[in-house]
Design a binder for these strands. Sequence first.
DNA 1: CCGGAATATTTGAACATTCAACCATCTTAT
DNA 2: ATAAGATGGTTGAATGTTCAAATATTCCGG
Lengths: 164, 164
Amino acid sequence: MFKYSGRGVSLPVMTGETPWLTDAQQIAWRNYLRGARALEVRLDAELQARSGMSLAEYELLSMLSEAPSRRMRMSALADMVIQSRSRVTHTANRLQERDWVRRQPCANDGRGVELVLTAAGLAAVKDASDVHVRGVQEHLIGQLSAEEFATVGNAMAKVRAGLT
Amino acid sequence: MFKYSGRGVSLPVMTGETPWLTDAQQIAWRNYLRGARALEVRLDAELQARSGMSLAEYELLSMLSEAPSRRMRMSALADMVIQSRSRVTHTANRLQERDWVRRQPCANDGRGVELVLTAAGLAAVKDASDVHVRGVQEHLIGQLSAEEFATVGNAMAKVRAGLT
DNA sequence: CCGGAATATTTGAACATTCAACCATCTTAT
DNA sequence: ATAAGATGGTTGAATGTTCAAATATTCCGG
């Protein structure tokens, strides 16, 4: 991104092939990018500090906690939280070492593996969810009007849907 | 996060000390979280594939490209892109190996170091910005109405401002 | 039933990021 | 002046993530 001087217009400019961003779009985009990053950093830091698990770990455990029988297949989990399969494997290993989770071969599909939340794991997420929810309330929801927050949620759902 | 059954009300519920999320908030929050993640993953992947640099690297170079004299102090850069100083140091090392950037001791402040964008670096960002902007247009802006996008940008700016 | 393609997961090495300790310089108060 | 602390930046080890290759199982056409 460069500052092309004297381009304060409010319509997209086509320079050859790439539709550039208007100044307003540029600003909105960066506000989004940095805001999103700052928020994630903060939520992760607080969770880490106050309950000893990362946001990524929390998301996995939290998905498990809501799933029927508190178990889910590796790939389903990966898709759900938007992490690579490999990453879920590694993270699951760490969670397993803490006895928050255990592996179980999948009944019907011999290739599959299910990750099962243990009692200790359930207790851990429960604990963490308190911290997490508080953070979301304080740092995100509390900063916005109800309409804004709803719009943001909606918008990002659309964005996700648009990503093939 | 758990599914506490039979709790479909639309007002925040106080369970002891933590204001829980309403179902609608819960959904909005997850839409945001996953959407944001998916978007970042995609933009990063496209940038990586089509111009050989990560989004994090791009952000650094891009900030430099806009700064007066195309140079910036390490810490200013770190604050700008919301990365740890250590991370910026390491990333700068990699960028330096590619000759996209070089280091220069700071004139007034003997502790400081300025990162300077090289000609090759400038060419590289210029190239990458094309890919990046196209991605933002297509995956974010193109999916939303102008109002929605503006609201999102605004909202995230507020969020950031609220983070002390 | 067989073989090849597709799917699910794991593995380990390469790479990136965090974390805590460290060194140097600047600032302030005495 | 000088010592104490704050600030700016780097270092290397520990940790986490990605990437490509490997393994195992299922699916499908013949």
